[in-house]
Amino acid sequence: MRLLPKSFKANKRERGIELFLLFCASVSILTTLGIVAVLLFETVDFFREVSIVSFFTDTEWTPLFAQKRFGIWPLLIGTILISGIAMLVALPAGLLSSLYLSEYAPDRVRRVVKPVLEILAGIPTVVYGYFALLFVTPLLQKFLPGLSGFNALSPGIVMGIMILPLVSSLSEDAMQAVPRSLREGAYALGSTNLQVSFRIVIPAAFSGITASFILAVSRAIGETMIVAIAAGQQPRLTANPLVPIETMTAYIVQVSMGDTPVGTLEYKTIFVVGMMLFLSTLVLNVLSQRLRARFREVYR
């Protein structure tokens, strides 16, 4: 008879713990919701003063000047330009290194190279930023005399190097998930290593590889420190990688660190740009997650 009330007590404690854990889990969800709410609220407020049409059609972004213009395109193009350069570096290099690690490297090499690659991901981005500004840019200037001190090219390349381990590691995971029986089947039909890699492994791991690419793009778009340091802070509508530009993230840093009074239109631009950033990375992350879920299903 004593057992019953005791277990009842234990049940109550269990319930208490459960509620506490639920609370912990909700904190991060509530924070996210709060952030989205603030972004949304300030964005709506912003569009009360600035027409949404001019936001998407104006070609200049000068909220901090006397002559205020609010065209998002210079920031958007700046972001796309740098992310594009980063992808040109990270995608081929990441894919090929994952292919090497997964299909060619002997076990001993893989055991050394993979952790080293992943260390690249642990370097603080501010270090990459100064690396771009003080090392890569001067180096590039030797070959490209027209390159200005701040530019899109150098931070783009460095960002690509930073993202490379992400692409390589996720792509390699996807390739490792391709069953060995498929490789054996292909080898048994007289395939070379290269044919197995490109005709069997990459197609079979395709959705996983694509997911890693998309995640990498979203990382590049959200990357802040490197571009804030090495790309300059001049919103400019150009596809020329040799001149200073500004990305959305760098703009947010610039305004937040200045002394913009709360409630002003300049202040609200932070949230509008933040909203743009949030939407683009959200779409990409959802897309990437969908693809990864699909590729997990194929070889259950």
């Binding site: 069953p179 054996e184 089947g185 048994a188 039909l189 007289g190 070379t192 079979a204 194929v298």
Partner: peptide, 20 residues
């Protein structure tokens, strides 16, 4: 080895069709 495997074909325990 590639030539050899063309001359000596193999069928595995677990059927392993390519996802094609």
């Amino acid at each position: 080895v590639v030539q050899l495997r063309c001359r000596v074909g193999m069928v595995f325990q677990k059927s392993n069709p390519f996802p094609k």
